[in-house]
Every structure is written in C-alpha cells, then in structure tokens.
Computed example of a mutant assay.
Amino acid sequence: MADQSPPLKIVQVLPALNSGGVERGTVELARELVRGGHQSVVISAGGRMVEGLIAEGSEHIEMPVHRKSLMSLFQVRPMRRLLAELKPDIVHVRSRVPAWIVWLAWRGMNPNTRPKLVSTFHGMYSVNFYSAIMARAEHMIAISDCVKKYMRSNYHVPEERITLIPRGLDPAAFNRDACSAQWRAELYAAYPELQGKHIVLMPGRLSRWKGQEAFLDMMACLVSLRQDCHGVVVGDAEPGKQHYFEELLAKRDALGLRDKVTFVGHRSDIPAFYALAAVTCHMSNKEEPFGRTVPESLATGTPVVAFDRGGASESLNAGFPQGLVPADDIVAFAIRVDDFIDGDAEIRLPESYYLSSQLASTLGVYRRLLSGEGAN
C-alpha cells in the first residue's frame, strides 16, 4: 500500500559508493524513496555506483567523509552548512566516520529546526569510543536480530530506540528471469568451462573472513563426490589487498582445482549468477551481521548452504533452514551442497526481506521521529 503521508527529504551519508552491502543498501533505499515520491540525497566520497544512483533520481553530493583521520574533522563545518542549506527532514548515517562528521555538525544546529538523526548498525562494531558514535543517533536501525542483541548488550541502547529492519531486496531484480539465454551465451563465450556444469556459487568481495579459502577446501571435497560441478567465485579484492587474490589462486592450483573453480571478479549482474547457480554458498568464518547473499539467492529460487551462525543463520532459518550446516564443518558443507544439486528445494522467503517491507518500516521510523516518538 502506498505511503499517503507528505513526501520527505532524506539525506543518507556513507563513506563511498563503490561496492558492498552497505553501498547497495543505500542505493536501493534511495531508489525506493524516489519511487515513493520522496526527495533522496546521498552524500559520499563518490565511486562507481554514483552514476546509477543519479540515473534513478537521487541527488549525489561528493564530500570527503571517508577518511579515518582527524583531518575529517575539517568537514564538520561544511557539513553543517550543507545540512542547513538542504533542510532535510532526516539525516541517515550508515558508517562511523560519516556519523562523527554528521553528529558534530548536527549538534551545533538549532534543535528546533535541525533534521532528525537516524543511524543504521550494519555490523557488530568494536566496542570503543570511536564506534559508540553510531549509538548517539536519535533512533537506530538494526539489520538483524544478532546485531540488535549486540547493540543492547554492548552499547546499552534502550529497546525503544532500536528498530529491527532486515535489508530488503528487489523482486524485480532477484528472480529466475535474471538469467536470460543471451546472458548465458555471453557468459559461456567468456568462460567455456562453465557450460554443461552445475554451478556452485561463492559471491562476495575477496576478504579473509568471507570464506573463500573454506570454499576452495569445500570444492576439493565436492569434486571427490562428483565431477559435474564447477565453482564460481564472484567478487574482487579490496583496494590494496590484491595479494589475497594471488593467495587464493595459488591455493586453488595447489588443491588441483584450476579447471574446477573460476574467479570472475567484480560483476554487476550478480542476480543472473544466482539464477544460474545450482547452489549458493555462504562461508564467512565469523558471525556476519546480515549476509545479504542468502536472501538474494533464495529470492531467485536457488538454495543456499551456510554455516549456522550470525545473520546468515537468521535468514536461512526464515526461508530455507535445511541449508544450515554446523559452523566450519567443511565435509558436512560439501555433502549438503551435493544433496541440493540433485534435489528439489522448497524455499519460502518472508515478505520482510523485500524492499517494499524495508521501505515501509524505514519510513515508519522516520515518521515516528518527526512526530516526536522514538527518540531519547
């Protein structure tokens, strides 16, 4: 049901718009705000996603709000001037450095006319003075129940100042139709080794805690069970960490998987990969706050196997609990993947994991704040 209240002007602030779950969530919410008739402004240091953000109707303002340095304090006055000029209803911060800049700017504004301040805890931040800025907003959003519990126990945030809102996905993007015949033909032309194989997908940026090493170990187990599968790793290394990619390639070759695992780098067509895959893997080696690859894959009808911990466990329990395996049990993981390649998966992803629900819940937070509820 469409929101019938007056349109709002929302400013979201994050470090940059390159890649990652926070960035994608910001862009998706911005798009949905515009679709709903609201004004959307995003402030960041820029990045590859800016062009798409603007094309979808949001305004982008480039500002160096990304540096983890005391020099960032020089952005406080410019931010205060900018917010006074924009006159938004809500400022929504999504990361710690921008949160410090915005909060220091915001607290120097007239309390009667300044915007309301919201933060989203996208992770279980280290407990220290630097991270505590995320708890200084007037209201906070937790992206999963494990994050909410972390906020309550470590930052002692009152229950009434937290709203649990899972990250939403767009059903128009994440569905079986994402994988067209033309897309498959182009993919197989670039990667002929994938044709005729059951694709076992490992999405996510290349990072030690994301589990790519465990994925390679799992693939070594899986190919000992069957030869008709091929692992595909989607994602690139973080800036300055290209050496990790080289380590992964060396490990792949040492395990004899050169012709069984392909790294395709950063891709903007991840929904098509989900739809192509027989199984998607989530193998983070620590509790992940949410793990958006889980509901995204489930939305396309592709089963997910994941270690039973963190936000990924929550998502799978909600939509496909049979995909959970004991944490760090590589052999059990491979056996479960093998089972799902040949089996029929009954997936039921709740409505709360879709963008329409996220937008309605987030607007609810904004409206309650503006009416005087939900703040300290």
Rank of each mutant, 00 (worst) to 15 (best):
A2K: 15
P6T: 07
I10F: 01
I10M: 02
V11K: 09
L17H: 03
N18I: 01
G21R: 04
T26V: 12
T26R: 12
R31W: 02
E32F: 11
R35Q: 09
G37S: 03
G37H: 01
H38R: 11
Q39P: 00
G47N: 02
I54S: 04
E62W: 05
S69Q: 06
R77G: 01
L82S: 08
D89H: 07
V93Y: 07
W100S: 04
W103L: 03
L104G: 01
W106M: 00
N112H: 11
K116E: 10
V118N: 02
V118S: 03
T120M: 02
T120P: 02
T120G: 03
S126R: 06
V127Y: 10
A142C: 08
A142V: 04
A142S: 14
S144D: 07
D145Y: 03
D145Q: 13
Y150A: 01
Y155P: 06
P158R: 09
R161C: 06
L164K: 14
P166C: 03
G168Y: 14
G168V: 13
N175L: 03
R176I: 13
D177Y: 08
Q182R: 13
W183A: 07
L187R: 14
A190K: 15
A190L: 12
P192H: 06
L194G: 08
G196A: 10
V200D: 13
M202P: 08
W209S: 05
G211I: 11
E213S: 15
F215T: 07
A220F: 11
C221A: 13
V223Q: 14
L225D: 13
R226E: 11
R226V: 03
D228F: 12
G235D: 13
P239F: 03
P239I: 12
K241G: 01
E246G: 07
A254Y: 06
L257Q: 10
K260N: 15
H266Y: 15
D269I: 07
A275I: 06
A277I: 13
T280N: 10
C281V: 11
H282V: 07
K286H: 13
E288Q: 10
E288A: 10
F290A: 04
P295H: 11
T300M: 02
E314D: 05
S315I: 00
N317W: 00
A318Q: 12
A318R: 10
G319S: 14
G323S: 05
P326L: 05
F333P: 05
A334S: 15
I335Q: 14
D339R: 02
D339A: 02
F340Q: 06
D342E: 11
G343T: 01
I347F: 04
L349E: 12
Y353S: 14
S356Y: 04
L359I: 02
L359T: 02
Y366F: 06
